[in-house]
Structures are given as C-alpha cells and as structure tokens.
Design a protein around this nucleic acid. Structure first.
Length: 554
RNA sequence: GCUCCCGUGGUGAAACGGAUAUCACAGCAGUCUUCGGAACUGUCGUUCCAGGUUCGAAUCCUGGCGGGAGCACCA
C-alpha cells in the first residue's frame, strides 16, 4: 500500500507540473488515528514550486488522484495535508492475514543478506554485569529484527578469556584459597585481585607475572586453575543465556584472536609503529587518537585482538555485514580500530559496523542488590524473578516459576528496549521492578488475555470470521500498521521503535476489550473473536522480535 | 584542554522538519469479582537559554549554560 500511494501521489504531482520520484514522496502514519491511515505533506513541501497555496495544491492533487483501490476516502486537512482512509475491506484483509500467517509482518528489507551480530560479550572470571544484560537485550532484538526482515543471521559472542582481569582473578583464587570451579567465587576473587593490583606493589608484580603465564601457558598449575575457572564461568553464562532466550551460533575467545592480531600487527610495521617502547597506531592522521596495540612488554591489547577477531569471524562465515554491539564508552576506541583495519584488512573493514548503547546509570548513587552487593545483571534478574513470583502465585499459570522467569525477562528487557539504544538508561529499582503500566508484563498480559478469549471461543464452538462490513475501529487500524512498524524498526536497527508501537497497540486492545463483550452470544461474536485472534498473533510476533516470551496464561 | 553524545510535565521516556508535543509512573477522581483488575475511564502538568534558517523547529545551524563518555600501554 505505501508504494502504491507514493506512486499515485508522484503521478498526481506530475499532473500539476512537478516531477518527483515516488521514493521522495513523504508518506507517514498520522500520529492521530482520526487523521487517517496514511498521510502526505507533499502539498506543503512543493507549494513554492507549484506557485499556489498548499491547500489549493492539495485539492489539485486529490482531484488528479481520482479513486484508489482499497482506499475509502481521501481528504485535504489542516494546513494542506492529504489524508488517506483505508476501506473496511482492506483492513479486514489485514486482520485475516495476521491470523493466518505467523510470519505476518516479516518483510524483504534484508532479504538474502548474511549478517553476523556480536553481542553480550561477558568476560570469563568476571561477573555478568548490567552492561552485558543491556548488550544482550539490544543485540538479541536487533538479530531478530534482521531475521524477521529476511536476513540470515548468525549470533556471535566474543569473550575475554585472557588478559589482566584473568590474572587478577587467578591471583585472588590463590590468595583467598577459593575453588576455581565455583563460578560464584570468581567474582570475589577478581574483586580482591583488582583491589590489590591498585594498592599493593608486590601484588601488582605477581599479577603481571601471572598475566604473562596465562598468555604463554607454560605453568602447569596456572593452566589448571585457569581451565577450571574458565569452564565454570562459561557454564554459568550458558544458564543465563537460556533464561534470556539467546542461542549463540559462534563463540570467539581472546585467546584465539590474540595470536592472529599480533601476527597482523607485526606484518605491517609501517602502519603500527614504535612509540615509547610500545607498538601503536597513530589515529591522528584520521582525526582520531593514538592507541596502543602491543604493550612495551610485547602483549597484545584489546585493539590487536579486535583485528584478529575480524579475521577469524570472516573465516568462520562469509558474511555481508558484521555488527558489533557494545557500550557507548567504546565508540572512540572502535573508530581507531576500524581506521587501522582499513589499512591492513580493507575489504573486511568495509563490512564491519558498530552499534553502541548507553550506560546504565543509577538514580540514587550505588545500587545494591538484596544481598547488599553491587547489583549485577544476574542479581537484577533474580530480584525481578522474586518480585514476579509473588504475582505468579495468584495467576492461572500451571508453572509458577516458569511464569515468574518469563515476566522478569519481559520486565528487564522492556526497560532496556523502550528507549533509543544510544541513550543512557537511568536505572530506577522501583520502576524496573514494576510489573504494571508501561512495561513488558503489560504487553504479555494483553497477549494472554487475547489468547484466553480465543481459546474460550473455541470451547464454545464460535468460529472466528472477519466481517468486512463492520466499521473498522482504532484497534484494527493500528493492527494494520504492524508490518510497517517492524520494517521501520529494522531499517534503523532500533528495537524501541517497535516497542513504542506494541505499547500503543496493546493499549488499544485493552481499551477495546474493556468496552466490548467478545463472546456475547450474538452473530457479531465471530467477527470479534477474529479480531482478538489477530491481536494475539500480532502481539506474539512483536514480542518475539523483542526477545520477550509470550506466556499463554499469567 | 580536545573529541563525541545528551538536555522534553514532579519522575522516566516518545515524536522520518509537519496537524492541538504523545505515553507511562507518581498525584487526584472514578469503574467494584469482568469473556482475566498485571486492566479500563477521567483529571492535573512539559520542549535549558539567546539568536538564525524555514510556509512550518523539540528536531537543522551558531553561541552560551548544564550533564555523561572517551582521550597510551585495561577491556
């Protein structure tokens, strides 16, 4: 429909002596439903070229448009907008499509593209913190947006299993006599090592020595502790991915990318130069800043490993695009790495893009979990699950724990995905734990209601059927916008654009549901059940794209 | 100091340069066991400041003020 309208409008404008291509026709969904299903501001834009007032030009365009199939009414409104109102039959068709096709709304925007999405990226031996949770929520949703719009997607997770943080954790394990195979002890060990590194010169030397041993793998005991800790950490992360609904296709580790990166750096002595004993890339030539690639001790930094990662990714899968999702604080770093990569791996550098998300900031200073520790992604999820369990006990769900978990995931992901991903999130415990209003559970609840009324209709033998003669309401008009809402979000790699739509849509459903009685025993029930069924499937699709589970009862 | 990002009701957010700036929370007033109240209805209240571009600016440009991030051997 959008393309059809753009073409017709461009042709009508041509009749008024102005020639533009259909793709340049501004066409939008009016924010207010009373202003129609589609609207264009061409008459306002080209009023000068046409040499007539906007409304006069708009009238001329409308006259030239004549009638369009599927459009019931075209009118000039406001300063010179042209509004299009779809015919009941066209909207009824959308309802039927939504019911019949569980892929309804999936498009061809990224058809046949091969895209690798790298996100989450926690570090073994460290805790799964809130930044990882944010990266996971955003990355998973972008991966699904891409999939839903036709792309072949591979999910990648890149983890720092070597480097100073590992040495700090191993030092802590040894000093505190902790068990490396206990994932919950690793966070404590890292904290101890990290603190000692700053305050104790002897400890600093010991940790630096350990770091070298982790890289050269020559010390049998260190290797043993390292292997146990790494294994425990990774197994624990898998439990979290399962709860969050992410299944990675590829895992990359810094222990693999480091040697590749070093080889790349050493092979290009003109690009990576000596400076104060270190090997650096001078980003100033590209308007950036200098960054160290090999330390004066000869060890690779994150920058060098990133080069090796790019090469390793490309060997693993022949992608068209590789997207990396990280926190905003790494944006400048990433630009320098990309600039360097353009010099040594130009073809590959052109395929790599970076999306950054904001930081989680705390509304009231340091945030603590219920155990008094600094809040992590994991503790947040646990706290939310506990809060949700209280509600779940009074629900109609068969499995209270499963529901509590599904609601907790919805609550936390929604918080992250409701706003533009580049912006910081002000974390408010009360708000994050809230299961009402502008929240993930609100969307789930609307879905569960629709699901249950459809099931009940089946039990009563009511056969759903859309009646094209019924005057379309706001709910139907919003439903019709779903495919374009997904495409809009996908084209910007912005899940929040879909979240905003789903909230408005779920809200319209709840209002409608409060006003009408679906199973009222009359002949109109069939039409209403059909609409509820379309809402059910559409919310389910939308929640899937956000990476949020949609329980049938709650 | 330099670079980048951001300033929208009491709070948190939305708005491809378009229509009366939208939504939620909190507040206030209601719906009172309904096909599911994790819901619905009503109400109160907002674009940091000063210029500029435009038929039209929260949005673009310039200059302030305020906040955040980054800027050499961490990731």
């Amino acid at each position: 429909m959008p393309d059809l309208l753009r073409g017709a409008i461009a042709a009508a404008l041509g009749a008024a002596g102005i020639s533009i291509s259909p793709s340049d026709v501004p066409l939008e969904h009016p924010a207010e439903l009373k202003n129609g299903d589609y609207s264009t501001s061409v008459a306002l834009k080209y009023t000068k070229e046409a040499g007539m007032p906007p409304r006069t030009l708009a009238e001329k365009i409308v006259a030239a448009l004549g009638t369009i199939g599927g459009v019931a009414k075209i009118e000039v409104a406001g300063a010179g907008f042209i509004n299009f109102y779809l015919a009941p039959s066209a909207l009824a068709e959308a309802v039927e499509k939504a019911r019949a096709d569980d892929k309804w709304g999936s498009g061809a925007l990224n058809a046949r593209k091969k895209i690798m999405v790298e996100y989450t990226d926690p570090n073994p031996f460290k805790e799964f913190h809130i930044g990882h949770l944010m990266s996971n929520a955003i990355g998973e949703s972008i991966a699904r947006l891409l999939q839903f719009s036709g792309a072949e997607v591979k999910r990648a997770n890149y983890q720092g299993d070597v480097g100073p943080h590992v040495a700090k954790a191993i030092w802590g394990i040894e000093k505190l006599g902790l068990d490396a195979s206990d994932s919950s002890a690793l966070g404590k060990a890292y904290a101890a090592g990290s603190e000692a590194y700053e305050s104790d010169a002897t400890a600093k030397q010991e940790i630096d020595a350990l770091n070298a041993k982790v890289y050269d793998r020559a010390d049998a005991h260190v290797n043993e502790v390292y292997a146990a800790g790494r294994k425990a950490s990774l197994a624990h992360f898998e439990e979290l991915y399962k709860i969050l609904g992410t299944k990675f296709d590829h895992y990359f580790f810094e222990s693999e990318t480091a040697p590749r990166g070093v080889a790349l750096v050493q092979a290009h002595p003109k690009v990576f130069i000596q400076s104060d004993g270190a090997i650096v890339y001078r980003g100033e030539d590209d308007g950036l800043h200098t960054r160290v690639f090999l330390t004066s001790k000869g060890l690779p930094t994150y920058e060098t490993k990133e080069l090796g990662l790019a090469e390793l990714k490309a060997e693993t899968w022949d992608f068209d695009t590789s997207i990396t999702i990280t926190a905003h604080e790494q944006s400048d770093y990433f630009e320098v790495v990309l600039a360097a990569m353009k010099k040594v791996l130009p073809a590959l550098a052109a395929k790599i893009t970076h999306i950054s998300h904001g930081m989680m900031r705390f509304a009231d200073g340091k945030m603590s979990s219920r155990t008094g520790n600094v809040i992590t992604g994991e503790s947040l999820l646990l706290d939310l699950t506990d809060a949700a369990r209280e509600r779940a006990k009074e629900s109609r769900a068969d499995d209270v724990d499963a529901l509590a978990q599904a609601v907790a995931v919805a609550a936390v992901k929604y918080q992250i995905l409701k706003q533009a991903s580049g912006k910081d999130i002000i974390f408010d415990r009360e708000r994050a734990l809230s299961l009402e209003g502008d929240s993930g559970p609100y969307l789930q609840y609307a879905h569960a209601r629709a699901q249950q009324v459809v099931e009940k209709a089946k039990g009563q033998g009511v056969v759903a059927a859309t009646d094209a003669k019924v005057e379309p309401n706001d709910l139907v008009r919003l439903l019709h916008r779903f495919p374009e809402a997904v495409e809009y979000a996908a084209s910007h790699n912005e899940p929040h654009l879909l979240t905003n739509y789903l909230l408005a849509f779920a809200s319209a459903f709840n209002s409608w549901y409060a006003q009408v009685h679906v199973l009222d025993g009359t002949s109109e029930a069939a039409h209403k059940v059909a609409l509820a069924d379309a809402v059910r499937q559409t919310l389910k699709n939308g929640l899937w794209v956000l990476g949020i589970p949609s329980p049938e009862r709650m």
